[in-house]
Nucleic acid binder design. Structure first.
Lengths: 190, 190
DNA sequence: ATTGACCTGTGACAATCGTCACAATCGCAC
DNA sequence: GTGCGATTGTGACGATTGTCACAGGTCAAT
């Protein structure tokens, strides 16, 4: 398994010594996922961070039987469910592969047992938590600041890779509209 | 100035020794605010956390000349603009007193200068950051999970003090609707 | 008591969105 | 090529919301 992405992704969060990076690398476990295979299911307790090496992860929840997407996490980025993580409550979210993927799993239970008070690890985890929460907040601000059409054009401008890798049906729920409405928003753009 | 609220609010975030709490207390500066007086203005760089001792703080941003409320922070709770804080970018939010208030200000510039590598302070700040971000995420989930009417009923059930202390006009923008729509939602509840 | 500022409710109308139904297109296995 | 499933576009209709306008109520200062 190639650890280049792993090392540079860790270094991006916490600019620390090579030894500390090696220590963090040793905490990560790689896993292959088929499309649709879950890392975290609704009802599970989240105790891990996930780093995407290849493919992407889709985070969604179940609203009256309908899946609603909250985030798509691509290569080199981390995801977790901090709410479940911090409150130690069962997750109401599911995190699963959106296509055949490879991820690195940082399990906090094993990390804490092995390197309990190691400052590099605790610092890394807290920085990562803040990073993940700020990324989630950016998505939230879409809903608070923009109308559905404005949200789509924001993505079109600021995150065009989403349009290339995600189906429009998946994107619709991410933008908080039905796929029909998204289709009409796109029709008016021409 | 009464420091009881200050001490217990700090202890709630970081369960640490009395000395560390005393250290953190010494970092806080009290300030009185008139209604509408701002602590953080749009364009400012946010370098502080605010703890409400009395009254409440209203966090809002300007959408095409219209103020949109993002949060109301009451006695014993903290607020900040983490996005500006972490990215060191000018704030697009304003934090101001919603009624005559007393707040404790934790200025990170002065704290960092005095106690740079003190573990109790850095731990406290990071925990606080995560706490504030998770609180913000709870408000965000209202928008992603519920319709406007469901949002109002959620507040009615889970945060009734908001209805008692905030005018309906202020609440409307917090729920992402106009005051007329909120008025109609309330009318249908009877 | 009167004024004026602010808040809340409500009616009329237009715009937007969701729902349901069905057609068109695309990709892929056979 | 053929067939099938998944995806996307579109039309019709109802429900919800925003906008604009105005009425009534509350409260504090004069």
């Amino acid at each position: 398994m190639n650890q280049t992405t792993l090392q540079s992704s860790i270094a991006q969060i916490s600019k620390t010594s090579d030894e500390d990076i090696a220590l963090l690398v040793s905490c990560a476990v790689a896993r292959k996922l088929k499309k649709g295979e879950p890392l975290l299911k609704e009802g599970d307790l989240c105790r891990s961070f996930y780093l995407v090496e290849k493919g992407y992860l889709r985070t969604w929840y179940n609203k009256n039987g309908v899946p609603i997407n909250l985030s798509f996490t691509f290569e080199g980025h981390f995801i977790s469910n901090l709410k479940s993580f911090k409150s130690r409550q069962p997750s109401d979210l599911t995190i699963e592969a959106g296509e055949p993927s490879v991820v690195w799993i940082f399990d906090l239970n094993t990390m804490a047992a092995t390197y309990k008070a190691h400052p590099a690890i605790t610092l890394f985890v807290r920085r990562l938590a803040i990073r993940v929460l700020l990324a989630s907040e950016e998505h939230s601000s879409l809903f608070k600041m923009y109308t559905p059409a404005e949200r789509y054009h924001y993505i079109e401008k600021n995150n065009p890779q989403l349009l290339q890798r995600i189906s429009l049906s998946q994107l619709a729920s991410y933008l908080g509209v039905t796929r029909e409405t998204l289709s009409r928003i796109r029709a008016k753009s021409n």
